[in-house]
Simulated assay, not measured.
Amino acid sequence: MSTDHAQRATRCLVAKVGLDGHDRGAHVIARAFRDAGFEVIYSGLHRAPEEIVQAAVQEDVDVLGISILSGAHNTLIPKVIEGLQSYDAFEDTLILVGGIIPEEDKPQLEEAGVDAIFGPGTSIEATVEFVREHAGSE
């Protein structure tokens, strides 16, 4: 039966990439996603792009939420996306970025394949609603 995917909870990987050691926001969003009924996997701190790709592929996630505050977003996030593409996992994965992303960097990230960027002050409800509306909608 093809209903397995429709009946299981939305699977989300909340990931911290690079040397960024600030994970409070990642924990807040992981808790909010759990409270919303999503299945959540948290990567832990200081993950290389390759580690995040491996976790996303192995866990068959619907959503990859990358939390980044280090300023290395233009380098690290495209590496994650390229890795997902190499495993043929990009098209089926909703890619979200949370953190402090300058306005001038957003078009480049969106062009690389990021579906949404959530900055400081974004409501938890808006983020959860975005996932509900867009995860697995293909």
Rank of each mutant, 00 (worst) to 15 (best):
E133G: 04
A116L: 07
A15R: 00
T75E: 13
A116Q: 14
L69F: 11
L45K: 02
E133S: 12
L69D: 05
L19G: 11
R24I: 10
K106N: 09
I41A: 15
G44V: 04
G98V: 02
Q7D: 06
D88L: 11
R24Y: 01
V128I: 15
L94V: 09
A116C: 11
V114T: 03
K106A: 15
A126Y: 01
F38Q: 03
D4W: 13
I77Q: 11
P120Q: 10
E138I: 13
G83V: 08
R34H: 07
G25I: 00
H22V: 08
G121M: 08
A135M: 09
V17T: 04
H27A: 15
F118Y: 09
V53A: 08
L19C: 11
V114R: 00
V14H: 10
G83S: 11
G65Q: 01
I100N: 11
I29N: 02
L109A: 11
G121W: 03
A48H: 11
V53N: 06
A126G: 08
L94T: 06
T122H: 14
E104C: 14
R47V: 02
E129F: 05
A112G: 08
Q58E: 14
E104K: 13
G21T: 00
V128Q: 11
D92P: 03
K106V: 15
V97S: 06
E110F: 13
Q108L: 15
L19K: 01
C12Q: 01
E133M: 14
G113L: 08
R11G: 12
H22Y: 06
E129T: 13
L84H: 10
I101Q: 04
D20F: 00
E50R: 12
G136L: 03
E125Q: 14
I100M: 08
I29T: 07
T10R: 01
E82Q: 14
G25W: 00
